[in-house]
């Protein structure tokens, strides 16, 4: 059986992330799923954005396209449509995915592009010093909300679900076994899949909000976790402050390329000389 290290540029370690940062846990989960599925590296293309978690491509030995802040999903859309046989994996933080790139996320979900978005949500912009993002919880302290954050945060999974995502799941860094299972579920899903991975940022968010060390933050995530099945039986008040984990949405809807391919098949003209452009 393949080892997760086979999919990594292991000699690039130690990585850039701070001690205790949860991003490495997600990175290992991603590589472990590739190994578990025994994917051919040439069949995978990872697209990453900007931010702490945008650096995952530095450590993976697969096809990689590292793009601008927030634009990983549209770049991945181009790849997924130009080569539908590829497993397109998009790694983003909360900034990339639902703040600067929020518009791209909802449209990508709506179109049901066949790709897998893996989002590491640490509630803040860790790479640049802990400023608030679109997922920073109300009342939190960050370097740009020193008096407490007054905005309401996005629930990434609910946003994706409302936009039409066909596979939506969430795991925490406390539970890497579940994280692997959900990432694999996303890759195997045909259509737009999104896995939100809750990760701790002990350096900035944790310190500003006095949440202790990395392990304390992970324990707190676990204490707040509630399985998706159970969450269905709970009221909005009961779910306040909880982290719903597991598969939240899993449904079939034809993906963009499959639909478009039917247009191609119906409209295609044979080019002279009998050759058909196969691209």
């Amino acid at each position: 059986m393949a080892d997760y290290k086979d999919y990594m540029l292991f000699d690039k370690l130690p990585h850039t992330w701070c001690a205790g940062c949860g991003d490495g846990i997600v990175l290992q989960s991603i590589a472990a799923v590739f190994a578990e599925m025994e994917l051919d590296k040439h069949d995978i293309c990872l697209v990453s954005g900007i931010g702490c978690f945008g650096r995952v491509d530095d450590y993976l030995d697969i096809n990689c396209m590292h793009v601008t802040h927030g634009r990983a999903l549209p770049a991945a859309t181009g790849i997924a449509l130009a080569n539908p046989a590829l497993h397109v994996i998009v790694t983003m933080g909360d900034g990339d995915s639902v703040t600067i790139g929020g518009n791209h996320l909802i449209h990508c979900a709506r179109r049901n592009i066949d790709l897998t978005a893996i989002i590491a949500n640490n509630y803040n912009y860790g790479q640049t010093g802990g400023q608030y993002s679109g997922t920073t919880p109300t009342d939190s302290i960050t370097s740009t909300s020193p008096y407490g954050h007054i905005e309401q945060e996005f629930d990434i999974c609910r946003l994706a679900e409302a936009a039409g995502a066909t596979y939506v799941a969430r795991a925490t860094a406390f539970n890497p076994v579940q994280m692997r299972k959900l990432i694999r579920g996303g890759i195997e899903h045909k259509g737009f899949s999104l896995i939100e991975c809750m990760v701790q940022c002990p350096t900035h968010y944790g310190r500003y909000n006095r949440q202790g060390e990395a392990a304390d933050m992970m324990k707190m995530m676990n204490a707040r976790s509630i399985p998706a099945e159970k969450a269905k039986t709970m009221s909005a008040e009961e779910l306040e402050g909880r982290i719903v984990t597991g598969v939240i949405v899993n449904k079939n809807r034809e993906d963009y390329y499959t639909k478009y391919k039917r247009i191609i098949d119906a409209q295609r003209i044979r080019e002279e000389g009998g050759s058909v452009n196969e691209n």
């Binding site: 940062c21 490495g24 846990i25």
Partner: peptide
């Protein structure tokens, strides 16, 4: 293996 999987630093 939880220690291995949770170790963010490989």
């Amino acid at each position: 293996r939880l220690c291995e999987m949770r170790c963010p630093d490989f």
